[in-house]
Design a binder for these strands. Structure first.
Lengths: 208, 208
DNA sequence: GTCCGAAGTTATCGTAAACTAAGTTGGGAT
DNA sequence: ATCCCAACTTAGTTTACGATAACTTCGGAC
């Protein structure tokens, strides 16, 4: 890979950094690793970002945007609120190969709670995810696809908590977790039931 | 604090380390910080632990044991399976002040996925928590306190996922999360409903 | 062709962190 | 009283990481 115009190099650096940070977390990832992954030398990183932390924050912000955009696209061609909802629950970005790195970065970022800039970037993203899901649930409730026993806000936090926890367990690769049980039931089916307030249709999940 | 016999010093080191690791995570916490928190110098740490990582792994193992013991104690005087269950759901160790540090250590540890020794220690603990909760749910199902729509295994993973995610969000201190909504409903009430399969009694929670 | 700015490299600095070798102190047993 | 050993400290060594200063190369404009 030869020379790249600044904007492209910047994007490429973020692309490569995602993989490294997802694997090693912020603190363990070194600027040398980041540079090597992008096929450049370390000073190039500092041409485009003030610091390692600046790069990380930029990555979090970009990843957040991309995640929401990807969700919008996924839901765009769904006809009913119920269908939109089923996709939302079934497509945990943490488990799909493309979204995996992105979400691992977030998981890693959560443990950098002590760093104000990073914590804020993460909190911003989570808030916007909450807003997104809450609005979705609200529409679904109005359409009758979701039980209105609970407010959309609380339900959205439930979904986010579970998605986050699920992702963390997946990252750890714990045996028995994330697989269907002897009755063919998956965690997301349980989740779906919370939402509809009655026995739900099995959740549509992407094949592995 | 003067001299201590080896066994006590070791315990004290672990005690102090919990606070530091909870705050800064494994990678960011320095041996200097750990020593200072315990009121000793760094070589003392190496008298009792082979390495920083060894100390961290020991801490994870001890914390895991303590958490289960604390749960056992909490549930001991509960009369019915339903009562035991309500306490299990209501007492997320992540939110009680005593259990908080302990569980923050775990959260932090999860992002050290790349380190085999650490990952294994965490996975071990999670597995034993799963066993504990699953058995509890199984008994509760037999007593009719929990819907048998889902297997205890899947329900236990649901609880763990949600507890973990909830803890992560709490750690981030995200606004609006973890509070009751306008109807006085808390996340754990939603969770309780998953378990019983019908409108549940409000969950008993420790006052904040 | 040559000039210039942007893109990239080499070589290195300062620092902080994990870990240790060697010496010092305190307190219990005889 | 003194001897001894475990507990503890001082004063480093080493290594690796984040960051930068100074230099080189590429490619388009005129």
């Amino acid at each position: 890979m030869g020379r790249l115009p600044a904007a492209e190099r910047r994007e490429q650096l973020l692309d490569c950094a995602a993989g490294i940070f997802a694997r090693y977390g912020y603190a363990r990832a070194t600027t040398a690793q980041l540079a090597k992954a992008a096929g450049v030398t370390e000073p190039i990183i500092y041409r485009h970002f003030k610091s390692k932390r600046d790069l990380f924050v930029a990555l979090i912000a970009r990843t957040g945007r991309q995640t929401l955009e990807s969700w919008e696209r996924d839901l765009a061609d769904a006809k009913t609120p119920a269908e939109r909802l089923a996709r939302l629950v079934g497509d945990n970005p943490m488990v799909s190969p493309e979204g995996r790195d992105a979400y691992l970065v977030f998981l890693q970022a959560i443990s950098e709670v002590e760093d104000d800039a990073i914590r804020e970037a993460v909190a911003d993203h989570i808030s916007s995810v909450h807003t997104f899901i809450r609005d979705e649930l609200e529409r679904a409730q109005q359409g009758g696809a979701v039980s209105d026993r609970y407010t959309p806000g609380v339900l959205a936090w439930s979904l986010i908590s579970m998605g986050l926890g699920y992702g963390a367990l997946s990252a750890l690769g714990i045996e028995g977790h994330g697989q269907k049980d002897e009755r063919g039931i998956h965690l997301s089916d349980v989740l779906a039931r919370v939402l509809v307030g009655r026995q739900a249709e099995p959740v549509r999940r992407k094949p592995e």
